[in-house]
Design a protein around this nucleic acid. Structure first.
Lengths: 114, 114
DNA sequence: CAACAATATGTCTTTTATGACATAATGAAT
DNA sequence: ATTCATTATGTCATAAAAGACATATTGTTG
């Protein structure tokens, strides 16, 4: 038996930010384009854009700095808020994952500590 | 912003056991009947039964000791495996919840510790 | 000013999950 | 043997989530 965990952030009740969104933002940061990021993750641009918008609305935070037109048609980069968010998110989830593994071993696999 | 977490157990990939199932099992233990437990939780017997069956299959573990017929029509009680499972589950999730709160404060609210 | 590649949205379809309905089967008690 | 409240399941309807399709907008570059 394995233990799993999904960690996400909420603001006033609504869904907000979890691992899928984090990967999407990281891909945008790396590729400089939401369209390219969506392609890389195998999802439609429409879906990716929708997730970003929903997250921005839920957290009340602007995530992408966007330009349209121009050479290459435009692009998107992360706001500093977004960068800080994914940094803290990764730090947090990494730490929790370690703690969960440790506690799981303690409670479920080390019978004598019951 | 708040952090949320859903913890569940898996066995070979499938869903298995999380908080809803735990409450259902506890209600069965208290009431001696799956039917009564379902009523208490405001779900249909069909749904409750389906969840139990799915969990038993996923974990490869018998959860309910069942009798049909007789005075009162029958009833259900928890197997010792089931009792042990919810005990450990509660212990585990309780511990993780505390740790998550603590880490959240440390990473998201205590700026100087960045 | 026409072309281009990306952002920006509305809408429709498909899939998936959840719950509702109906109907057996059980077996002690009467 | 009839009754009764429960377990046991198949099937169908409904709701929610995810994805597909189409189309407009933008603004620099050639």
């Amino acid at each position: 038996m394995k233990v799993k965990c999904k960690i996400w952030f909420e603001e006033n009740g609504g869904v907000a930010f979890a691992d899928g969104r984090r990967m999407l933002l990281e891909a945008v940061e790396r590729l400089g384009s939401l369209n390219a990021a969506a392609k890389e993750l195998g999802m439609s641009y429409r879906a990716a854009w929708g997730k970003i918008k929903a997250t921005e609305k839920a957290l009340g935070m602007k995530l992408l700095e966007v330009t349209t037109g121009g050479k290459g048609g435009g692009g998107a980069t992360l706001t500093s808020e977004a960068k800080e968010l994914i940094l803290k998110y990764k730090k947090y989830t990494g730490r929790i994952t370690v703690l969960m593994e440790k506690e799981f071993k303690r409670i479920f696999e080390n019978e004598k500590s019951q």
